[in-house]
Design a protein around this nucleic acid. Structure first.
Length: 446
DNA sequence: TCTGGGGTCCTAGGACCC
DNA sequence: TCTGGGGTCCTAGGACCC
C-alpha cells in the first residue's frame, strides 16, 4: 500500500522573518505581497488578532498601529534559500519526494512502516524535530495513503484535530474513527475543492469531508468534472495522483509587476517590459526551453473605476523560437508600441512567454542562421553566469533603463541574511546586566 | 496614497476533416 | 418523409493550487 507524507512549513514567510530577528519573538508579524499590497503570511500572533489572509495592508493600518503588528515586504531571496535548506533535509528522510511548493513537499514513505517499530508518526516527529533543530523552522507532517489524504492529515496536524506534536498519521486510524474525524471537517478544506465547488456541494447537501467521501463518484463526475471524481477516490484511499519527482518544464512563463506609482509614458513602460522580459527569459533558459510567442499586457488601476480604464494585451508570434533576451525584448517592445495609448495611468505591466519547447528539439527554418544561434547561446550563458555570480542585474540590456523609478514598493525589506555576504546576520558577544551573553547585533549593546 | 504573482488542468463549443 | 459516424484542433472560460 502506498504511503505519502506531506511536510508543510507553518506560516512559512513569517517564520523565516522571525528566524533572524529575536526581537520578533511573540510579536504579531505579517508578510506582504509584492508592492506591499496585501497580507500573504501571518504569524500565529497575527492570526490570533484576526488578521485575514489577502487583506490590503492599507486597510489594516489602524489595527496594526493599535496592536503593534510588524509588516515585512516579501523577501523571496530569503524564503527560496530557506526552502532549499528544508528540501535538503527532507531528502535525507525519503528517497522519493516531490517539492510541491515553496513550503510543502510530499515524501513517499511506502514500505517505511515495517522499518521501525516506532511507526510512521514517530518518523514524522523526527523529521519535524530535525528541521526545528537545524533550521529553526516549525513544520507539520501529515501522513496518508493518498496525496489528498496526506494533505488532509497535515491540516489535522496543524489544527491539532488529530495526532499529536504536529504530526498526524491517518494510515493507522481505524475506519470508524476516520469517518468521525472527517465528519467534523468542512468540505472546503479538501485539496482541490475551492470556493465555487464548495458552495455548489453545499447546495447538494454535502458539507463535510465525510459526506463528499460518501458521494457517488460518477454523479460527481458528471455534475462537476473528472478532477472531483479523482478527489473522491483519493479520499477513499484509492490513489489517483502520483508523486511527481521531476517537475515538468513550464508550458508558459509569466513575469509581471504592479508599479510603485502610476506610469504614463511609453519610455518608462518600455523599461518595465524589458525588465520583465529579462527575468522571464532567464527562467526560460534555466529550463532549457525556447519560446515561440510573446505576449505583452498593460493594466490601469482596476480598483479605481472612476479613472479611465484600459487593459490591452497583444501576442506576437516569433519568426523563430528563441531564448535570446535581445530578440524577445525587441518583439515585446514592438508589441508594447502597438498597444500603448497615451492618457492613461498604468498600474501594471506584464509579459508572457508561450509555445515553449525544449531547446534541443528546436526546428530551424529554411533561413535560420545556425552560426548566429550558437553565438547567441554563448552570450546568454555568459550573461546568466555573470548575473548568477555577481547578482541579478549586474549585466543587463540598456533597454531596462537605469533609473527604474516605476519599481515596486518594498517599504520594509529584511536583509538577505543567508545569500549575501554584506547582509549576513551578525552574532556578537557582550555583557548585559553583568552577564556574558551571545546575541544578534541589534539585541545587544556593542 | 494604498488592492500580488505565478502557475495547471478541464470542458464546452465551434470549425474543420474524411 | 427520409440527411451518419467518427475524429482532431483550437480557443475561451472557469475552476483550482500556492
Amino acid at each position: 500500500m502506498p504511503v505519502f507524507a506531506l511536510v508543510d512549513c507553518n506560516n512559512f514567510y513569517a517564520s523565516c522573518e522571525k528566524l533572524f530577528d529575536p526581537r520578533l519573538k511573540g510579536k504579531p508579524v505579517v508578510v506582504l505581497s509584492n508592492n506591499d499590497g496585501v497580507v500573504v503570511a501571518r504569524s500565529s500572533e497575527s492570526r490570533a488578532l484576526g488578521v485575514p489572509m489577502g487583506v490590503p495592508w492599507h486597510e489594516l493600518k489602524a489595527l496594526a498601529q493599535r496592536e503593534g503588528i510588524i509588516a515585512y515586504s516579501s523577501n523571496y531571496t530569503l524564503y527560496a534559500d530557506m526552502s532549499n535548506r528544508v528540501i535538503k533535509i527532507l531528502a535525507q528522510y525519503a528517497p522519493n519526494l516531490e517539492n510541491y511548493s515553496i513550503d510543502e513537499s510530499f515524501l513517499e514513505l511506502s514500505g517505511f512502516s515495517g522499518q521501525s517499530k516506532e511507526g510512521l508518526a514517530a518518523y514524522g516527529k523526527r523529521i519535524r524535530e530535525r528541521i526545528a533543530r537545524d533550521l529553526g523552522l516549525p513544520v507539520c507532517v501529515g501522513i496518508g495513503p493518498t496525496k489528498t489524504l496526506a494533505k488532509l492529515a497535515n491540516h489535522c496536524a496543524k489544527k491539532a484535530l488529530a495526532g499529536q506534536d504536529g504530526v498526524c498519521d491517518l494510515t493507522v486510524m481505524p475506519d470508524k474513527g476516520l469517518s468521525e474525524l472527517l465528519g467534523t471537517i468542512a468540505v472546503g478544506e479538501v485539496w482541490g475543492v475551492g470556493r465555487k465547488i464548495t458552495s455548489r456541494l453545499q447546495a447538494m447537501g454535502i458539507h463535510t469531508v465525510q459526506a463528499l467521501r460518501e458521494g457517488n463518484p460518477q454523479t460527481l463526475r458528471s455534475r462537476f468534472s473528472v478532477v472531483l471524481e479523482r478527489t473522491v477516490q483519493e479520499l477513499r484511499g484509492v490513489p489517483c495522483l502520483e508523486l511527481e519527482e521531476v517537475a515538468p518544464a513550464n508550458q508558459q512563463i509569466l513575469s509581471s509587476r504592479s508599479f510603485g506609482r502610476p506610469v504614463t509614458t511609453l519610455p518608462e513602460l518600455g523599461e518595465a517590459v524589458s525588465s520583465y522580459i529579462a527575468k522571464a527569459a532567464q527562467r526560460l533558459r534555466e529550463q532549457h526551453s525556447v519560446a515561440g510567442a510573446v505576449q505583452v499586457y498593460l493594466q490601469t488601476n482596476i480598483f479605481k473605476p472612476q479613472e479611465p480604464q484600459y487593459q490591452p494585451a497583444i501576442t506576437a508570434p516569433l519568426p523563430e523560437p528563441t531564448a535570446d533576451t535581445r530578440e524577445l525584448t525587441r518583439w515585446a517592445l514592438k508589441a508594447l508600441r502597438q498597444i500603448y495609448r497615451p492618457g492613461f495611468a498604468y498600474k501594471k505591466a506584464g509579459v508572457m512567454l508561450f509555445e515553449l519547447q525544449p531547446q534541443a528539439l528546436k526546428q530551424d527554418s529554411l533561413f535560420a542562421n545556425p552560426e548566429s544561434d550558437a553565438r547567441s547561446e554563448i552570450l546568454m550563458r555568459t550573461m546568466d553566469d555573470i548575473n548568477q555570480k555577481w547578482g541579478r542585474g549586474t549585466l543587463q540590456l540598456l533597454a531596462e533603463g537605469t533609473g527604474k523609478r516605476w519599481k515596486m514598493r518594498r517599504g520594509n525589506l529584511s536583509p538577505a541574511y543567508t545569500t549575501c555576504w554584506e547582509e549576513l546576520a551578525k552574532v556578537v558577544a557582550g555583557y548585559e546586566d553583568g552577564e556574558y551573553v551571545l546575541g544578534q547585533k541589534h539585541t545587544l549593546p556593542e
